[in-house]
């Protein structure tokens, strides 16, 4: 019997056990691929932020991106809905296919991309408006023709917030607690009927109880949406995700730091017996 831990190229893909994170009888090997990323390189002017990343994101799963600061995990996340377009000097190379369509193709409308692929940020950022207006803002801009009251209730229910705010829909969103504000942001993101919800450190500004509520919500939401979450919290990645992608940083001779994908596998595997020593060192705290 030989030892499997060794340095080597990126390790990608194995069967996913949904484990404690999900009671759903998923058939992970056959879960369709929503994002098919090949040879992704991201630059900010001359700075090479992410190198040569290949990654598949599967439908109705939670995929966690983990790694040390500066490893490019948030940069990769922003490629999923072209948020990097908004950053001056950002350049994306490689293939980012969403349902087989090149997201960066010339005919693709970035606004439509962001409607289908919503995003929740680190710090809750509700608009300084009422709870109701926060939910209906995006759909109105997108020309929503249905019943707005129904949309608000449905979105808030899906975000597990309805019972707490149903009597103060006209109150300011800024009067809600931090955890409630983040769930409002999730409700706002799903109000536009997205296919994918991206979350960038969604719980880092929340207390443990609010964090567990968001994690519970994520597990419910994945029945309808595909979720990609960036987190510094490895326990959180272990608790909620089906697959985990571990990114690391290469430091060049002149100190330039370039992120790269090291290992991508079923979460159970990554946190109990990762294939690569580099991953093992990171998750066991032997790095730096």
């Amino acid at each position: 019997m030989s030892i499997r831990l060794e340095s080597g190229p990126v390790v990608v893909g194995r069967a996913v056990s949904t484990g404690a994170a999900s009671p759903s009888p998923a058939s992970p090997e056959t879960a369709p691929v929503i994002f098919d990323i090949k040879g992704l390189n991201v630059y900010y002017r001359d700075f090479h932020a992410v190198a040569d990343t290949d990654l598949d994101i599967h439908r109705n799963e939670i995929t966690a991106l983990i790694g040390p600061s500066g490893c490019g995990k948030s940069t990769v996340l922003r490629c999923f809905n072209r948020m990097n377009d908004l950053i001056d000097g950002a350049r994306v190379e490689g293939r980012v296919l969403y349902h087989g369509i090149d997201l960066y193709g010339p005919a693709v409308d970035a606004v439509e991309v962001r409607r289908r692929i919503g995003m929740v940020f680190q710090k809750p950022n509700p608009f300084p408006k009422s709870v109701y207006e926060n939910i209906v803002f995006g759909p109105k801009v997108a020309g929503w023709k249905g019943n707005l009251d129904d949309l608000v209730e449905e979105s808030l229910r899906r975000a597990a917030l309805w019972d707490e705010v149903k009597d103060k829909l006209d109150g300011s969103a800024l009067d809600l607690s931090g955890g409630q504000q983040q769930r409002l942001c999730i409700a706002r993101a799903i109000a536009t009927s997205p296919d994918v919800v991206l979350m960038d450190e969604p719980c880092s500004a929340l207390d443990p109880i609010a964090t567990y509520r968001i994690e519970s919500l994520m597990r419910e939401l994945k029945e309808q949406y595909t979720i990609v979450v960036v987190t510094h919290n490895m326990q959180q990645a272990a608790r909620v995700s089906d697959r985990t992608a571990f990114f690391s940083v290469d430091v060049g001779e002149e100190g330039q730091r370039t992120g790269r994908l090291v290992e991508y596998d079923a979460t159970d595997q990554v946190f109990t017996a990762p294939s690569l020593k580099e991953t093992e060192d990171y998750i066991t705290g032997r790095f730096g």
Binding site: L5, Q235, A238, F271, T272, A273, E280, I283, T284
Partner: peptide, 9 residues
């Protein structure tokens, strides 16, 4: 400590 990886094993 919530050990992981080889520490968990």
């Amino acid at each position: 400590q919530q050990p992981m990886g080889r520490d968990l094993r």
